[in-house]
Design a protein around this nucleic acid. Structure first.
Lengths: 350, 350
DNA sequence: CTGAAAGCGCTTACAG
DNA sequence: CTGAAAGCGCTTACAG
């Protein structure tokens, strides 16, 4: 350590961290010496002594998908601004099953101050683990277990998309988005399906079971699902895909089948994926990176609250605590319809 | 700690880590108790005491691009297999400049055993910092400073792509890929441009300066570069884009201009991006995730070597060390031409 | 094979 | 405002 600079380690510690009880003069000297030696405090020792790590674990199921990597970026930038670093917890999937948080978290749990969980469907044992860890948790995409959450209004987004198709005169509309029961581990926003169904019902339109397709949310998933959907004798005049990646897959299959878009088939997605414009895809845009940023803020708040619970807890009568502070914060990001060329009126309505 | 289990902390430590000097019986008991208490050793304390952290920092310029997130996944999975965790060092870019490793590394440097650097153009001061840190470093994409590196043979890949176009009869070929001097911070594989030039020269074809375009390696970058390229009076009959994302942008612009592909314009890229097939894009495939995995392996080797340098160093005469061990390992991943519909013979050759 | 002791590099009350 | 002391939870030689 840099005590060779003339003072005690305690003073160095205080000076470098900007704590109050140091004279300006001493602080300046310490800072200068530290700079010259390019000294950096060891975070491990600091966290051992202080109990805080300044690290946040981010649990993410698919690092390589646009949505997840974008959320991650947003969160990372926000957290870094406050001096936090991101430790990756990639829930790589092996075949149809994914690695469990039960295996993933142990090397991480004592190294982080909080956990950010992106759209993961948690098993009961995983939830139990998370609770036992007693770390602040924030989720993105789908509310879970009463933890604070950042997401969009999936019902409204799906409703907007569905209405858009209905307004064009479509009646035979298919939905691609994953029957929740089929999804192994990603917590799909099942509200999107609910929004679709509700909007169809409100317009007096039937939803055919064969036209509600489970899909793994990837481009290739969209390709194969669309093949099933569009090759039958009866085919819909429009498809609402719950993600742009699936929608792109649908467009690809439609093109291979010689279907004209939007005359023979309209397609709408959700996301406004960075490549959606290449396919002239109409979609519901959501601010993905911003959601990550908001999640980062929520997490910072949660860490602060966990660090100083006595601030407004101990000083008040016991009953006071729960009513105000306990409400799980639910932040809803705005969405908007992005009109492009993949939707239009059906060529032979009805 | 779980010494409530009957033995000393030292024994617990040895038992749980599988060290030799413990009886099978004791070990079993300790493991059981630890399991019941769901005890996990604190990595911070461990690293403080042992000097090893089991964490690797990954420096990545663009988290949201397919290439980088795929490499990251590959590396992460490989590292996790050996008990290592990934700490993210995202070099977010602010406008035309990026945040410096000088700011990024301090919170990370004492927390990691090694550093993986993905295609980043390092400034002299950053290189100096990296050297001073004395951590094992491995790079991906572009060899740097003699550190071990995983990449593809960029010259060969570019040569294959260029030859492919020439074989179709193209003579007027443009290159999109970033003049190295224009690139602020990503270490573009300038070998690709070199490979292009060499192959053109070998066929006696001229390379026009206006047809070698700097580009930021994104889809939108490809769109705008192509607009510049294809609107002029003189336009090439083929474009070789150094990445699929740029190539997709070119295809988009070509379509808007009413050019037929491949009759009016052939386009080839490099990557075999997961969405390349949607655009029927001919390309040079590279195994991206695998490269990440290989980089992870190299990093593990480097960590092991750093941990036990005396193993074959101290026991030999001094001169022995350098010759054999110092060679920087350079792993080259294979590439292959993926033939799709975006390339063909020009409609009016010559 | 096992335990007692020292120490990793910080931070945190506690005295001055 | 500053320093001396204890301790964070492990690991590592060193004795038994």
């Amino acid at each position: 350590v840099a005590q060779a600079a003339g003072v005690s380690p305690a003073t160095v510690s205080r000076a470098l961290r900007g704590l109050p009880r140091v004279s300006a003069e001493t602080r300046a000297r310490v800072q200068q010496v530290a700079g010259e030696l390019s000294y950096v405090a060891s975070p491990d020792a600091a966290s051992l002594a202080s109990g805080r790590t300044a690290v946040v674990g981010v649990v993410v199921p698919f690092l390589a998908r646009w949505y997840f990597s974008s959320v991650l970026i947003g969160a990372e930038m926000q957290l870094r601004r406050s001096g936090f670093t991101v430790l990756l917890c990639h829930v790589g999937n092996v075949g149809r099953t994914r690695s469990s948080l039960l295996d993933l978290l142990p090397p991480v749990e004592k190294r982080v101050d909080a956990l950010l969980v992106l759209s993961l469907k948690l098993e009961p044992r995983e939830v139990a683990l998370l609770r036992r860890l007693d770390l602040p948790v924030v989720t993105v995409g789908v509310p879970a277990e009463g933890w604070p959450c950042v997401r969009i209004d999936d019902v409204a987004a799906a409703s907007t998309a569905t209405s858009h198709l209905i307004d064009f005169g479509h009646r035979d509309i298919a939905y691609l988005g994953g029957d929740p029961s089929h999804d192994v581990h990603v917590a799909t926003p099942s509200d999107r399906l609910a929004g679709f169904r509700a909007t169809m019902a409100a317009s007096g339109l039937p939803v055919r079971d064969e036209w509600v397709l489970a899909c793994d949310w990837t481009v290739t998933g969209g390709v194969t699902a669309a093949a099933r959907l569009l090759c039958g004798a009866q085919r819909p005049s429009a498809v609402f895909a719950a993600s742009d990646e699936m929608a792109m897959g649908v467009l690809h299959t439609a093109a291979r089948l010689g279907l004209r878009v939007p005359q023979d088939l309209s397609v709408i997605g959700i996301d406004d994926h960075e490549m959606a414009f290449l396919h002239d895809l109409t979609t519901i845009a959501q601010p993905v990176q911003t959601q990550g940023q908001l999640a980062g803020e929520l997490l910072l708040e949660a860490v602060a609250a966990a660090a100083a619970p006595s601030a407004d807890g101990a000083s008040r009568p016991d009953g006071w605590r729960s009513p105000a502070g306990r409400e799980a914060r639910l932040v809803t990001a705005p969405t908007s319809l992005v009109l492009r060329g993949s939707t239009g009126a059906p060529s032979c309505p009805g």
